[in-house]
Design a protein around this nucleic acid. Sequence first.
DNA 1: GAATTGTCACCAG
DNA 2: CTGGTGACAATTC
Length: 172
Amino acid sequence: MREIIRFAWGTSSLGDFMIAMSKKGLVALEFNLRRAATEEALRVRFTEADVLDSQTDLVNIVELVRRAIEDPCFDPDLPLDLRGTAYEITVWKMLQSIPAGKTTNYGALAAELGTRDARDVTEAIARNPIAVLVPCHRVIKKDGSISGYRWGVKRKRALLALEQNGKDFRLE
DNA sequence: GAATTGTCACCAG
DNA sequence: CTGGTGACAATTC
């Protein structure tokens, strides 16, 4: 029985994005300018599945995701269908527990995992298929600089600025 | 900023 | 087991 993957496009202040869902939950959230290439990547990633354009079926999800991108405090509460090695999934779950407006660094995450090398953490984060909802943008280097981001360093800066100028966090 | 080097857990084969 | 591989980190210019 072939699996069904449905996808749809949305727009945000950070650019167009594509979401993809399996039966279980979100499998991808990608920013990309070139839609054809992104859709192709999805088909390659799920060669065993039927990949369908379901723009109309997913409008509600698209809207939830769009709000989550625009407003870091908004929790779309969507199920995520994480696919990866056990290690990657562990890392992604840790990322999700980072509060909005806060940042950490690769070394700290590594320490929490009980490993010594920051780079394995980095690699797992880099494989994160779901932008923003798995907040890989909240992880920066130890000296505070931004090194890389799968969807562009510019986008990472924008996200961080958005969260840190954050509307409703005052306190302190 | 950019280049340079040490280092090591992870994963695929 | 072996080897390639880094969205690192610390150092240097």
